[in-house]
Simulated assay, not measured.
Amino acid sequence: MGLHSRPPCRSMPGLWSALRSLLLALACAAGVPAFASAQPGAAQREDEPPVEAWRQWRSVLFRVQAPAAAPDAAGGAAAESVNFIFGTIHFGDPRELALDTGVMREAMSHTRILVNEVANDAHWDASKERYRLLADQAGLPGLIGPQAYAELQRLLPAVPPALLHRLKPWAALALLEARGEVAGEQTLDRRLERWAADMQLRTEHLETLDEQLAALDCVPSAEQALVLKQRLQTPWLFSEQSARVLEYYRNRNLAAWLDEIDAMVGLDARARPIEDRARRCLIEARNERWLPRLDELLRRGGMFVAVGAIHLTGAAGLLERLRQRGFLIVAEPL
Score class of each variant (00 low, 15 high):
4 H>L: 14
12 M>I: 09
17 S>C: 05
23 L>W: 10
26 L>Y: 13
27 A>Q: 06
29 A>V: 07
32 V>P: 01
35 F>C: 03
36 A>W: 03
48 E>L: 09
49 P>Q: 11
53 A>C: 08
64 V>C: 01
72 D>Q: 02
80 E>N: 06
85 I>M: 14
87 G>Q: 11
92 G>Y: 02
94 P>T: 12
96 E>P: 04
107 A>K: 15
109 S>M: 11
109 S>K: 12
111 T>C: 15
113 I>C: 13
118 V>Q: 00
123 H>G: 15
130 R>K: 14
131 Y>C: 01
133 L>I: 13
137 Q>R: 15
147 Q>I: 09
149 Y>L: 10
154 R>L: 08
160 P>M: 07
162 A>I: 08
165 H>K: 05
173 L>H: 02
181 E>R: 11
189 D>I: 01
193 E>D: 05
213 L>G: 00
217 D>A: 15
220 P>M: 09
220 P>I: 04
221 S>W: 11
223 E>Q: 14
229 K>S: 15
230 Q>V: 14
231 R>G: 08
242 S>T: 10
253 N>P: 03
261 I>Q: 00
267 L>G: 07
267 L>A: 03
270 R>K: 11
291 L>V: 02
298 L>T: 01
309 A>T: 07
314 G>D: 04
324 Q>F: 05
326 G>R: 05
329 I>P: 01
330 V>G: 01
331 A>V: 05
